[in-house]
Structure formats: C-alpha cells, structure tokens
Amino acid sequence: MENNSVDSELRKILRESEPEIPTTIQKRIDQTLTKLPTAKKKNKFLKRFLITSSVTVASFALLIAISISSPSITNALKQVPVIEYVFQLLENKGLNKANEMGLISNIDQNATDENITVSIIEVFNDGINISVGYAIHFSDKLNSSNIFPDFKIKLDGKSPSSVSVDTSSGQWINDLTYINMFTINTDQPSSEQFQFDLIIEQIGETKGNWSFSFPLTKEKSETTTILPMLTITEGETTIIIEEVNFTLTSTKIRAQMLKPGVLYDTYDDFEVIDDQGESLRRHNSGVSFGNDENIVQWEAEYEAVQEVPAFLTVWFREGLEITIPIE
C-alpha cells in the first residue's frame, strides 16, 4: 500500500478512536477561562507588581468533586496519619539542603472543618521566601486529584499588600491524604521573628475555616547576592542587570529595562539558564514602572540552584541574551 492510502486509513482509525478531554482537564480549562486576568493598568508607580505566571498560582479556587459520606470528625481525625516531613517527600533540593543544615522548623498544627483536616507540617523562612509544607486529609476518597487551597496570610497581625505564591506538584501518600508545599514571597517585617497567621478559606470547592498561627524566624542560611550592573543594548532597548540573588529556595533576578518595546509584554517569557545549560523553572515575575513608561523595573524569581553556578544566562528573546558571570 502507498503512503497516502496508509495515511488516510490511519487518519480515519485515529480519529474514530479519539478520546474525549478528561473531566479534570475540561474543568481546568473552563476555570481558567472564567478567571482570565483583567486588562493591565499602566500608571501608578509600583501599583501593579508580581503575581503573574505559575500555572498553579493563577487560579486557586479550583475543582474538586468530593463525595462525602459524612463520617464524624472524630473518625476522620482517627485516620489522619502521622506525617513528620513534607519537603523531603516532595524532593525539593533547596529545602532538603536546608533540612540537612537544621534550618527547617516543625510546626505540626492541625485544623479540621467540613470533614477535612489540614496539617501544617514544617516551614522554612530564609527572609525572602516562606515555604510551608502541609498535608490535607479527607474523610472520603476524592474523584479528582486537583487541590488548590485558597488562603490568606497575616504577618504580625497585618495583611501584606502584595503576595506572590508558588506551589509544586503535590502527592497522594494514600487514598485520603495529600501532601504539598507552597512558597510565599512578600515583604516581611524587619524583626528576626514575627507571628505568622495562615487562614485557609477554601480547599477545592469546599469552603471552610482552617486557621493556623505560629512564630516564624528568619533563618540565617547561605545567600549569595551579586550586583553585576551588566548592560546590553539592542536598537532602542537597553537592559541593565542590577541584582542576582541565590537562596536555598529561589534564584531572584532584578533588571532595569529602558525603552523595552515588545519585551514589556513578554517579561514572563524570559528564560534563565545555568552554567550546565539547565533552564530554571520560573516561580513568578513582574514589572513595575514610574511615570515614565520607558523605564521598567523587571523582577523575577526562578527555582533555586543546587550550587551557585559559574554564570547565568538570561534569554530575553531570539538574539537578545546576556551572560552574567558569578564570582
């Protein structure tokens, strides 16, 4: 048989047997479409900052099809397994290193509502990012594995004005218990220790109240900060790399862009590649600007590197990239 007839036969068979979009994905698409971001405003200094990107952050109140056969809270609590660590189970390299250095705090606080028990297992605060490892225990098996808790935080009793959150892919450790972590980036109080309140208001589609309060200490971990002040110019656009910061939980880069042109709209596409050629996963990114729209401050956080690399490359677009040597 000739290729054309094989192709048309294969095309026919493949089309006839095409699977439908699974419910999980269909719901995620619909949720994304109902929560599209509103149009950008371009006026006030530092007004809009951060909170973009990261698939997992974009929509918090997502789906869950829960079939609760209403066992008592006591019964639910009896089934909660003891979980001593989360970061290690999730294989987070930076936090595992922090663990080896004894910088992780065990919290072990539980809160139960709507037959769902949330346990805050451990936290780590490097002064820039607050990483929280948690477990959610359900009283009955879920039909969906998508769990996105909707929460708010307070630092020393005050709600921060700007918060960005990143989360990793969680794990089911048994049929009823899910573990995951999230990392919060926000302006922290100047004191070395402050009270941290975490109020979870929704888990999937279930609204409730799971509140936690505990002191957080800024751990003195290894951080490397360099101020390269490297400049690259192409056409009218000039980019100045001002600061690169390596911590156990993230790699942070700050740059100023003069007359950024189309780069302004693609700031969350910039890629950062380490000296091994590995592209770092982006946690979040954002731009801010003053009265002059031609001067834009770009700031982004990427995943942590295991070792501080000899150099980093920031790729802005085809033909426009800059390599930053790290001393």
Partner: peptide
C-alpha cells in the same frame, strides 16, 4: 492529566496576555 492541565492552562493565560 495534571501535567496536561498545567500546560494547557499556562498556554491559555499566555495566549490571552
């Protein structure tokens, strides 16, 4: 499915922006 949902969601947001 979760990976598929993640990349599709990111694509929708990027396309919109």
């Amino acid at each position: 499915d979760i990976d598929c949902a993640d990349v599709i969601q990111e694509t929708i947001l990027k396309a919109f922006q």
